[in-house]
């Protein structure tokens, strides 16, 4: 981290990992000889919308995987609202308020839109395992699921099989499912990638409303700089698994090292 000392960006992320909504210290993931996530210190305060940016292969998705324990970290500690959760299993985390969406459209393809959300609602309400063999599910779970579908604008499509949805609707359903876990911290992995302008706008609006209306803490991996600059409170730049800089969009934009590593490369392309 010392390499960022000379930059204009402050490294406010260290030290307060344990008081943040989501924090990490020294988080590292190695695959054999490759270090995908390298000594990452993170501290995202309550209610912040944090964008994670960085070139392809910077380790952004791996960072999400390690934060959610889809992959066990090689080293380091993860905190959720001040509580250490490093060894908490992946399926336990949504029950503690940490949820995520996936970059590619990961859905329960053969289930209907409503069923997709309802399965998540009933999991969160009844626990990681519930031997509930009666009826067709509680009506309150169904109502909750319908409410969530309403909030993302998928009510009309509730009976459609998930695999038959349009790309943008699939993305919205993915976010709806993450929301159905009633999270306090939500990680969104490139929610707008592969979407058209129109759909991108809808999804961006959805993210903003989730952030403002529900007051969630959000981590957002995003490639589209316009979105990053317009909606995020602060930005963390990853490069080769390390944190290059963290700051407000303007601070990060002015950071020489970031320009060098990231925007610089883009300019060359232009």
């Amino acid at each position: 981290m010392s390499e960022t000392d000379t930059s204009t960006t402050e490294r406010t992320d260290t030290g307060d990992a344990q008081t943040a909504a989501l924090g990490s210290t020294g988080l590292t993931k190695r695959f054999g000889g490759i270090v995908a996530v390298d000594d990452v210190d993170l501290a995202v305060p309550e209610g912040e919308l944090r964008a994670i940016i960085g070139p392809n292969g910077a380790g952004k998705t791996t960072l999400f995987n390690v934060l959610t324990h889809a992959l066990a970290p090689t080293d380091g500690t993860v905190y959720l609202h001040g509580e250490e959760i490093t060894d908490l299993s992946q399926e336990q985390r949504p029950h503690r308020g940490l949820a995520r969406s996936f970059q590619s459209n990961q859905l329960f393809n053969e289930l209907s839109v409503l069923e997709n959300v309802r399965v998540v609602v009933q999991t969160i309400e009844s626990g990681p395992f519930s031997f509930d063999l009666l009826g067709e599910g509680r009506s309150q779970h169904r109502e909750q699921a319908l409410d969530i579908l309403d909030s993302v604008g998928l009510t009309d499509k509730r009976e459609v099989t998930a695999k038959n949805l349009s790309h943008g609707d699939q993305r919205r359903l993915g976010i709806a499912m993450a929301l159905a876990t009633d999270p306090s911290v939500l990680l969104l992995d490139e929610p707008t990638s592969g979407l058209g302008t129109n759909e991108t706008g809808l999804v961006t609006d959805l993210i903003e409303s989730v952030h403002q209306d529900l007051g969630l803490t959000l981590l957002l991996i995003e490639h589209d700089m316009d979105i990053v600059l317009s909606i995020s409170d602060r930005v963390t730049v990853l490069d080769q698994g390390r944190v290059l800089a963290t700051g407000t969009p303007d601070e990060v934009r002015g950071d020489e090292e970031v320009q060098e590593a990231y925007l610089g490369g883009m300019r060359e392309e232009l």
């Binding site: 859905l107 399965v119 998540v120 999991t123």
Partner: peptide, 16 residues
């Protein structure tokens, strides 16, 4: 069925 359809997603959504 959710587990059959997508094990990874099921875990990420809190299903044991």
């Amino acid at each position: 069925i959710a587990i059959r359809e997508n094990k990874e997603l099921a875990r990420a959504m809190g299903i044991n």
